[in-house]
Design a protein around this nucleic acid. Structure first.
Lengths: 164, 164
DNA sequence: AAGGAATATTTCACTGGTGAAATATTACGG
DNA sequence: CCGTAATATTTCACCAGTGAAATATTCCTT
């Protein structure tokens, strides 16, 4: 991969090689992680969005409305309805109407949903730890700091440049 | 997101919070980047795999065989045939038989393929640079170093743990 | 020249994710 | 109360990607 980027860099000298390498690395790592996560969740009948939603509910004792959850799962309203359907159908979450505003639906995690989270989360911990096994404590802090910056930069790129 | 992870961490104390945050960040950044790239390529009739293959050919004056390309594009042989079909159909690459071993097919980028690369690559550079705009030169080197380590760690996880 | 391995392709069948716009219900402001 | 806005859901239509196994061709060894 590095060789390829270097050769392209020779042919196209304006190419910002280091940044291109960084981007490839991020794509590679992100893609691999996503694949792992989805493969692990699949046997439980969940995909990544379902899982993120379930985790949001797990950490929300008060429950949450679909629109709130859209942010967490990075999904549109239509899909959030679908995710809600799936979770409810699987008995992992329950719907109820908000008392104050009856337009709102509140999703709450069920005991069964909590059980599932507590069952599927721990086996992931060794893998998660393994991904950073060779990094020192300082390395991890640095990595987190830099990744947050990149995340912010990307975000402002998207807002300021609708052409993408 | 951080708040959610912290709350989950309270409920499940064994959770390695920092590593979980790192993983989420990587998933987030990777997913966003992939989305950007694919959105940019779509109007040109390419998806990410097609593009990676095309770039591999661009940087291979000698051409490359499908099996070699499978590695670059992280695809199986079946899909590489499909990608080859697509690139050839679009006039971006050409197939020929290897002289030494007639079982092998060699794919070469065409002049039209080179033109496309030189046309679609440069507009990406500002965006790529923007993603790391707030990082110092040292930060970028550090980030690259750390990402490479993570990539390696993940790789060995996969090989050593077929359960995933 | 025969059998076994490598390469590419084809066949076949399968899967999942997405989103825009119309609809229904409720809230809110005047 | 009436109109406008907010929330959720439904409807409809759409699209992309994947992979295992059978096949075809060629190579290599004996």
């Amino acid at each position: 991969m590095d060789a390829g980027i270097a050769r392209v860099g020779e042919m196209i000298p304006e190419a910002p090689q280091q940044e291109v390498r960084l981007t490839r690395l991020l794509l590679l790592v992100g893609g691999t992680l996503l694949g792992e996560v989805e493969a692990y969740l699949k046997p439980h009948g969940l995909n990544d969005s379902d899982f993120r939603t379930l985790m949001a509910l797990y950490s929300s004792p008060e429950g949450a409305t679909p629109s709130e959850l859209c942010g967490f799962a990075q999904q549109g309203a239509t899909n959030m309805t679908r995710i809600g359907n799936a979770l409810v159908k699987a008995g992992l979450a329950a719907r109820s109407h908000s008392a104050e505003d009856r337009r709102r639906i509140v999703l709450n995690i069920t005991p069964s949903g909590k059980r599932l989270v507590r069952k599927i989360l721990p086996p992931l911990f060794p893998k998660v730890l393994g991904a950073y096994a060779s990094l020192s404590a300082g390395d991890k802090r640095t990595l987190e700091r830099l990744l947050r910056q990149v995340a912010l930069n990307i975000d402002s790129l998207q807002s300021s440049d609708p052409s993408s």
